[in-house]
Design a protein around this nucleic acid. Structure first.
Lengths: 272, 272
DNA sequence: TTCCGACGGAATTTCGAAAATTTGACACTC
DNA sequence: GAGTGTCAAATTTTCGAAATTCCGTCGGAA
């Protein structure tokens, strides 16, 4: 039950062969949303995305719909799509569930994980450390790289939990947690204390001390959220332009419709 | 935080206006998969679906991708889609998490729910009872109707839990749980004991007895799963044609490729 | 002025056909 | 007979354009 696959979200390695354009676009779009390349609440026009990713209408829409289901994008009737908003309230919700579910996953993995699991964890941890030591990279690239391996490390720890659904929930929550973090905290900011936390979790896990590992993990998760929250409150506020919106597409006219345009019902032909 | 929306999955009422064809197709396809109109593991050809739902390529694919994310459909590289398999192992997993998460949701709702929540629950329960009393319907239709209202009743109970993510998780799990149930148990089988369980849960919830309600709910969930499991083990086994596969499309040739056809890598142009 | 409906540009949704890929079959060699 | 390469049909993926819908604006009536 280990080779559980849902999306290719958390795979760092060689990845599935026979990728379709849709899958590729999905991965890129998801990464761009999580990394903050698009602003929260921003309208995403398929025309822009087509230019940005150099693909046709179908892959774009197919990817968008999958992201809707993941909660990163919202679909507005026949009014297109927009990036999900960021609300502090939701960050609290996500953090609570991350603490509950990821700790549970870790406990189970420690209880039942075999040598292969240990090997995966050790390998992922090693990669993370190496990436942290790396210097001289473009900040954006460095952030992306670190986040990828950070995610992979956490996921490797849970990978032996034995419950596909738990793993899936963790996957979703981690993704969203990362988005909040990256929206509020500017890089580079891989503080050594975070690295130390990882080390401690890793040690406890390998020593098969489930309770200690879970405690450390919970602290780690809440710590990250607190940090984000602290930064958030000292800022314009959620939804109001966190991070820079890098790699944004050209200076298009954008025409954001008036925020809450009067929504009077009209006559309609179809779908009567 | 109550008006949380993800998919239109669990809405019974008036539903969002301005439906697009994709949304409609998504709802229909989801319902058909959950209800067992498609067999588990079956390949779904877009050509068939186009004929079945009378729409073009795009709505079909867009709906399919959303269902992939929900776990009801799996996407096979460039080899199309197939309905997710049913494995007893997974039913156990789903049941465990349903018990944990739905009970938690119910507890929270009881703790913080207001009058409006009570009203929603009472209304949903009333509808469920009325539907159960109804007679003289086509069995298929009756099953669909009952399931819709059963789902809505459970969801109404949780709707005041205050956590969007918890609600979303419950939504997904309920959906999958229903699929297993309907795959293994043939209708009509709305035993009076189930109705009694609902009544008891409802009473405890309205009396704000969180612990009792949660206990009853857990029993209810496990009871349903046990029933399904009992039927499953006395059958060909999961994945091997449970339920009837009603409303199946025309007697097409179906051409199921040999289960594990030798998968030798070929030369490829794109995505090199 | 304010409300209402129609008009037209912009964006989204949907379709159908072209391009690419998979799959099974057939012939050929070893 | 087993293994291998080629070919054509079936299927999926992708594109681009047509159809539909939305949204702001303008003009006219109360």
């Amino acid at each position: 039950m280990n080779n559980f696959e849902w999306g290719p979200t958390l795979r760092v390695g060689p990845a599935k062969a026979h990728k379709t354009l849709t899958e590729e676009t999905l991965a890129r779009l998801r990464r761009d949303i999580v990394s903050g390349a698009f602003e929260a609440g921003q309208k995403v026009k398929s025309e822009d995305l087509k230019k940005r990713y150099q693909v046709g209408t179908s892959p774009i829409r197919e990817a968008l719909f999958q992201l809707v289901s993941e909660g990163l994008v919202r679909s507005d009737g026949q009014r297109g799509f927009r990036v999900a908003e960021l609300r502090q309230e939701e960050l609290l919700d996500i953090t609570d569930w991350r603490a509950r579910l990821e700790c549970e996953a870790l406990r189970r993995a420690i209880a039942t994980g075999d040598m292969e699991w240990e090997a995966r964890a050790v390998a992922a941890f090693h990669r993370l450390k190496r990436v942290e030591g790396q210097s001289g990279l473009d900040p954006t690239e460095a952030a992306d790289l670190w986040e990828d391996h950070h995610r992979a490390f956490h996921f490797a720890l849970y990978s032996a939990c034995g419950s596909p659904w738990l793993l899936r929930f963790c996957e979703l929550l981690i993704q969203h947690g990362e988005r909040y973090r990256r929206a509020y905290i500017t890089y580079p900011r891989i503080s050594s204390s975070i690295a130390a936390e990882h080390q401690a979790i890793m040690d406890a896990a390998m020593a098969r001390d489930a309770e200690k590992a879970a405690d450390l993990l919970e602290t780690h998760i809440r710590h990250a959220a607190d940090l984000a929250l602290a930064h958030a409150t000292g800022r314009p506020g959620p939804g109001a332009s966190p991070a820079k919106a890098r790699r944004a597409s050209g200076p298009k006219s954008e025409r954001e419709p008036t925020q809450e345009a009067a929504r009077k019902p009209r006559t309609r032909q179809r779908n009567a």
